[in-house]
Design a protein around this nucleic acid. Structure first.
Lengths: 141, 141
DNA sequence: CTTCATGCAAACCCTTTGCACGTCG
DNA sequence: CGACGTGCAAAGGGTTTGCATGAAG
């Protein structure tokens, strides 16, 4: 699970310390989005003695490496999502929290159309999709 | 400027108090996105004696009424944007902060395609576009 | 007059920082 | 050994809340 994450970090010249290995394991165990507080709580529950600061620093590090991204949930909360280091968008399940990635689905034509109408020169965009994943569609709400 | 905003609130059964009138004026004077802190500062500068709490409560109220929306800037800051109470997306100028709205530009086909690929049932989405407005394109950076 | 909004300050997140100590390579 | 990571606690920024007072309808 988390081996590939650790391997990637190692390749980037990042030190693989105890806390980092443990956090990587906790993250891969979650499998979807989570908040910084979630991760802090996970670590506390296991009495790993990992401080808040370390969690935040590690999340920053992962974000710099491009294997983690910030997502703003519909309710305004900040969450982190593990992901591939290419440009893409997230599909977040509002029930179980799992996340899928989608690459270009024709968004460029949308931004081009918006640019044409508004006269803006578009530099970047952010698209987040929220809904129910296949598994959660089968569950009665 | 702010008259239409006040009228709308009045129609919704909202009390038009002094502080609210003043805040509405400050907001319409800004004309673009701004942070809560910006508005607090504006009020402080004019020595209107308006507290932070009132600013936040008023922004919440406007958001509930659908005439204001939360936007997360590329740098992660939270901003507020005055807008129409219909579904749309924002085009934010990263230089001057002005905001345009764009309605459906073919985004539905994008979400449909994403749904097809992933099996998700999409409930909502958030699209934010960042770039330079027509005026700012003419300015040397 | 009754209800609701306000200001103030304190309380509350969430996140970052400073620093002495510990660990990795 | 030397550079870097860690935990702790404190600081910081932004937002919310409790409460007595004041204004709106």
């Amino acid at each position: 699970m988390s081996e590939q994450l650790l391997e990637l970090l190692n390749g980037a010249g990042v030190r693989l310390t105890g806390p980092r290995r443990e956090l990587a394991a906790l993250i891969s165990k979650r499998g979807g989005h989570f908040t910084a507080a979630d991760l802090v709580a996970d670590a506390a529950k296991r009495r790993l003695g990992i401080g808040r600061a370390t969690v935040f620093r590690f999340l920053d590090l992962l974000t710099e490496q491009g294997v983690m991204e910030h997502v703003d949930l519909p309710d305004g909360r900040h969450a982190y999502v593990p992901c591939e280091p290419t440009h893409h968008h997230h599909l977040v399940c509002t029930r179980c929290g799992s996340v899928s990635e989608v690459e270009d689905c024709g968004i460029d034509s949308v931004t081009a159309e918006a640019a044409r109408r508004s006269g803006f020169e578009i530099q970047s965009h952010r698209l987040e999709l929220f809904g129910r994943c296949p598994k959660c569609q089968k569950v009665k709400r």
